[in-house]
Design a binder for these strands. Structure first.
Length: 525
RNA sequence: GGCGCCAUAGUCUAUCGGUUAGGACGUUGCCCUUUCAAGGCGAAGAGACGGGUUCGACUCCCGUUGGCGCUACCA
């Protein structure tokens, strides 16, 4: 039966602060958030920091930062409180202690005095006997009063274990459907460590119930944990939320996303300058589909269109290339001013622009976007391009240098540099006419001319239109880069830096070179 | 090993028994362009396998295979 969206849902996202928020977590948070907004419900952020050894203090802040960046806001959480505070499990000790006592008192749980060595030995022994279903033997479950007293007086530490009784627990999962678990396949499990620290299944079960979560939506890695949590809630007489387990987001090799494998961290994309709108859009389409060919969705669109019924069961691989394609689309859709501001900021961060860019610098950025804007998939792509434009010199591949060792080409380039030198403004040059005209003087083909200029200026045969490239480089760099070619080539030939006239006859003077009178439309520039 | 989940192109997905199996990313051809990118128009590319059920299965059932998850005093 479909979920009733007319009733407000209380949902939660419960990360453990053991690393950055990876994209799988981000999607889980997103789906929960969408459901809360859609139903006018509440989105709870709970921090599951019960594993002292793995917690990292900075992780919690990092998770906040990533969620905020994504535009996912929570209504209750550690930092803002709420009716069911505290929201950090490390601060909920008394609540778990009380629940554990009730479990003990009712006989639903018992104390286990086994040491970890004994447990380990048990497992070995079971394996040796060919039993691969290595579960807790339950040896402490039926301790006699005398045995128990002996352990107690010996001061042995104990864990609190939940006693799993025969039976079946059925999870009516909103995504996976009805899944039945035979208790025979679930061994007694520890709920409180011998150190007194509560464990995941216990805290999650208690908190989901006590925080009155109505729907638990999480990764399907937790599907097998669900019967344990439901048994716990049953034994404690607590209410049970509905459950929905969504297929995992996987690495390229189909393995589970882990926080240790540095890739696919939400922060990584944020720092690359990926737009949160693009990530949200991409994440939403991993596991959810609108049922139509539409694929551009804002967060608000998703609040409106998202339903659990259209969430798929299978896992999916996170495809970064597709994210970049989405991001490029978002970048193109951005108002120009915003794009300029974003790029300016990125350049400032990279130390490529001063904090208070003068108007000329702003204009430069605008020209840059005209030139390269549409090929940029993420803002980070722009930085190496900017650096290449800003560098004093340029590296021309040896092979290409060889092609430039041609007196006509050299002279042509020199003519270009003189042409540029004669101009006071490099914007809006009619280069598509000027360059062929000058090239014609030296009997160079149009295509070769453009390529020679491109190669001399950028060390590359490809790039944006020259009329945009010229103002981007500016007078000095153009002069320098073409001059560099001349000296490189000549040096390579062991020649003096002399220059050639149109007919091939060497000029006598090194400097100044007489302008070879570019044939046409110099005046229009 | 046991238990559970999953299974349409390289990837994300649509299809809810009858379709030329649709879309997107990627790949690729052409157009545009001095070039590249972008854009436009095309192309190639999929129901893991085997049994059923049915007039008819990608779709329902069973099995096999494969992938993943759980099986921790991690979450």
């Amino acid at each position: 039966m479909p979920l009733d969206y007319s009733k407000p849902l209380r949902v939660r996202f419960a990360p453990s602060p053991t690393g950055m928020l990876h994209v799988g977590g981000a999607r889980t948070a997103l789906f929960n958030y969408l459901l809360a907004r859609k139903t006018g419900g509440v989105f709870v952020l709970r921090i599951e920091d019960t594993d002292e050894s793995r917690n990292r203090v900075e992780s919690e802040a990092a998770i906040y930062e990533d969620l905020r960046w994504l535009g996912i806001r929570w209504d209750e959480g550690p930092d803002i409180g709420g009716a069911f505070a505290p929201y950090r499990q490390s601060e909920r000790g008394p609540i778990y202690a009380e629940a554990a006592q009730r479990l003990l008192a009712s006989g639903a749980a018992y104390k286990c005095y086994c040491t970890s060595e004994e447990l380990e030995a048990d497992r070995h022994e079971q394996k040796a006997r060919g039993i691969h279903a290595t579960r807790y033997s339950g040896r402490c479950r039926n301790l006699t009063a005398a045995e128990r007293a002996a352990f107690e007086s010996a001061g042995r530490a104990y864990s609190i274990n939940f006693a799993v009784n025969p039976g079946t627990t059925v999870v009516d999962d909103l995504i996976k459907g009805r899944v039945a678990f035979d208790h025979d396949t679930i061994g007694d499990f520890v709920v409180v460590k011998s150190t007194g620290g509560p464990l995941y299944n216990f805290t999650a079960a208690v908190d989901d119930a006590m925080m009155e979560i109505s729907l638990v939506l999480r990764g399907d890695e937790h599907l097998d944990n669900t019967p344990r949590q439901m048994m716990l809630q049953g034994a404690l007489g607590l209410h049970r939320p509905m459950y929905a387990h969504v297929g995992l987001i996987l690495n390229e090799d189909k393995s589970k996303l882990s926080k240790r494998h540095n890739t696919v961290g939400t922060d990584q994309f944020r720092k690359q300058g990926v737009l949160s709108t693009a990530l949200i859009n991409h994440l939403a389409l991993l596991g959810w589909s609108p049922g139509s060919d539409r694929e551009a969705f804002t967060l608000d669109d998703l609040v409106h269109d998202f339903t659990l019924e259209r969430v798929g069961k299978s896992g999916s691989i996170f495809n970064e290339t597709r994210l970049r394609a989405f991001n490029q689309r978002e970048l193109q859709a951005l108002p120009r001013a915003e794009y300029v501001a974003m790029l300016t900021r990125a350049m400032q961060v990279a130390g490529l622009m001063e904090a208070e860019p003068p108007p000329a610098a702003q204009r430069w950025v605008e020209t840059f976007i005209d030139a390269y804007g549409e090929e940029i998939h993420t803002i980070a792509d722009a930085i190496p391009l900017v650096e290449k434009l800003r560098n004093e010199g340029v590296v021309v591949p040896a092979l290409e240098l060889e092609r430039l060792r041609n007196r006509e080409v050299l002279f042509f380039l020199d003519a270009i540099s003189q042409y540029v030198d004669s101009l006071s403004e490099l914007r809006d040059l009619p280069l598509s006419k000027t360059i062929p005209a000058i090239a014609d003087e030296f009997r160079i083909k149009k295509k070769d001319a453009f390529q020679a200029v491109r190669m001399a200026l950028m060390g590359d045969l490809h790039g944006p239109p020259l009329p945009l490239l010229f103002p981007l480089l500016g007078h000095d760099r153009i002069m320098m880069r073409i001059g560099q070619i001349n000296s490189h080539v000549l040096h390579g030939r062991g020649l003096e830096p002399i220059k050639y006239g149109p007919g091939g006859e060497p000029f006598q003077t090194i400097q100044p070179t007489p302008p070879p009178a570019p044939a046409t439309d110099k005046g229009s520039a």
